[in-house]
């Protein structure tokens, strides 16, 4: 895999556990003990991030699943990913195996 493409891939931190509760998602960070709740779209993205995925593929998956245009999806997704990153929920290196 080219390095640039590898860098573009994102995935959940292996320190994260998550489950669906109805339409919402409950995330638990094993180190901080934080419990985080995400809505239906957030849950969908979390589920996509269970395996490393490129940002472009993630945006496309959101567009395919929900009634939203690619630009809006990308903007909202970047916001969401920033929040996930702030909570230490993303893998530092998505080439690492994700549990």
């Amino acid at each position: 895999m080219p390095e640039a493409e590898s860098r573009d891939r994102i995935a959940l931190s292996s320190r994260l556990r998550h489950r669906a509760v109805g339409d919402e998602g409950v995330l638990v960070h094993l180190d901080s003990g934080r419990v985080i709740v995400v809505n239906e779209v957030g849950l969908f993205i979390i589920q996509q991030l269970a395996k490393p995925i490129s940002r472009a593929d993630l945006v496309q998956a959101v567009v395919d699943e929900f009634e939203v245009g690619p630009q809006e999806a990308e903007r909202d997704m970047e916001c969401f990913l920033d929040e996930l990153g702030g909570e230490q929920l993303l893998a530092a290196d998505a080439t690492d195996p994700v549990q």
């Binding site: 003990g33 934080r34 709740v37 995400v38 809505n39 779209v41 993205i45 916001c79 969401f80 909570e87």
Partner: peptide, 21 residues
């Protein structure tokens, strides 16, 4: 013997809340 409130639009991904166990 979330770091933000619930999404205004349903399709906007939101991290709704973060609390400690």
């Amino acid at each position: 013997a979330g770091v933000a409130s619930r999404a205004a639009q349903e399709n906007q991904p939101q991290l709704i809340e973060a609390v400690s166990l």
